[in-house]
Design a protein around this nucleic acid. Structure first.
Lengths: 249, 249
DNA sequence: CGGTATTTTGAGCAGTGTCAAAGACGGTGG
DNA sequence: CCACCGTCTTTGACACTGCTCAAAATACCG
């Protein structure tokens, strides 16, 4: 919380702590992982489909997203990642990536060799467990997104995405409750919700004109969190956070 | 392959073998797991949202599906499970289920207490790894479904679902290539693809009238697998099978 | 054989998509 | 500091896929 507050992997520990108990020894072991830090540019590929993965990338600052493309070129964004999240922990035991990950914004990343992670997981069962839980929660989020895209209308879909993002950022200690900066274009928002950018625009404006959200550039605030999360049909249980976050008013 | 061919957990081993190497000792250890066998009726709940999970259910015969419901009552089917698959291996380290699992048909299930599985995973790292890989592959399938529902039209969506099901059944050694029995109503097909049952019906008939599939009750055959899988935009890589299955003509 | 669940069909409608163009914004070079 | 340029956002008109409602035809099951 103090001396290592500036280490790049501190946020990774915090992320794991949102769902798992991490003791001091585990914490120290994670912070001691070898890594190389570098900067990634917006839309730079961090994981490429069909390629083998040999290292684990952790977001230190900035955002990234997973995506997959159909043969006719339309793109579906599968998840959005915030600082502290590991981008390919989940592929650790698979041969080839089955999708892509791209930087959403400029992002600082820490690159950790897989062998170091594997060794750590062997040595510290609690960490192995936390990694598995991480992956399981990500799968839970995929399920919720599937429900979102498959069964909710445009209005709810977008509201849901915004609610999730807000709560995750807040749980990770990155933003206060009440609003956040959304680093996505409306086209990307559409790719995440299965809509066209034009319709995203109309839906956002509709939500805005109903007083359910306020926008200033890409800063979003929620004047009526309770109503919005009801419209979104948002229940954070699927995020499996250890400590329920009191969000909104 | 011989003496234990009839044991209920044989199919579970086979399933793990579709993606991981399982040696004889591991195989024996899995087959030796304690279990209770029983029959589940169609639509019986095998996992219930918000409840803690205390045991692992393996499908021995019959099918099951995961689903999640919005507050206004529409349902999204998240995945379909075939014999040999474990239904809640993925929840093994989470407190509460975030979705439901129901039997699709009458199904024989083997119920294994979680402690036995945890112990086995501690003792046999290859099995722990295989379980993780199982979960990761399931997540990969969720991602593909998200792409399917978010970015493909009705025709491709349904074709994709059929292709996936056919290949998975075939890889698990349950059906020969060329066709299979689809134990789902058109309403369930709609819930899996984010469509209404009426539109599923129309799409199926269209595919049929174009000679891309043949139906006899719920038996489906593929007179033109190559064309169908092209329309479906189906590439089995996301299933992460160890041995590519030659499917179709 | 009767009753229920499923499939099929029709007609009309609504939510989203498409195409196109006009603003607004933000960064860059002169 | 301003003009310029590319990227985003916003708006309009219109088309179309997939939805709703409703009812008939089949299939399934005890």
């Amino acid at each position: 919380m103090s001396a290592d507050a500036n280490l790049p992997l501190t946020l990774l520990v915090r992320k794991l702590e949102t769902h798992s108990a991490i003791d001091d020894i585990d914490r120290g072991a994670i912070l001691a992982l070898p890594y190389v830090k570098r900067m990634a540019q917006p839309s730079e590929y961090l994981v490429t489909q069909d390629k083998a993965i040999t290292h684990c990338t952790v977001l230190v600052t900035g955002y990234a997203y997973r995506q997959k493309i159909t043969s006719d070129g339309s793109r579906q964004i599968l998840s959005i990642h915030i600082p502290g999240e590991a981008l390919d922990l989940q592929q650790i035991f698979l041969d080839q990536a089955d999708h892509n990950v791209q930087a959403l914004t400029r992002a600082e990343i820490a690159i950790i060799p897989y062998p170091a992670i594997r060794a750590l997981m062997m040595e510290r069962p609690a960490i192995a467990r936390a990694v598995m839980v991480s992956n399981l929660i990500e799968a839970s989020i995929f399920r919720e997104w599937l429900l979102n895209v498959g069964r909710r209308d445009a209005r709810s879909r977008i509201a849901h995405l915004l609610c999730e993002f807000a709560v995750r950022l807040h749980a990770q200690g990155l933003t206060p409750a009440g609003g956040f900066n959304l680093p996505m274009t409306q086209e990307q928002l559409g790719d995440a919700t299965g809509l066209t950018p034009v319709h995203v625009n109309r839906t956002l404006r509709a939500l805005e004109s109903e007083g359910l959200l306020e926008r200033d550039g890409r800063n979003i605030t929620f004047p009526a969190w309770t109503t919005l999360s009801a419209i979104a049909d948002f229940d954070p249980q699927y995020l499996h956070l250890r400590h329920q976050v009191a969000y909104g008013a």
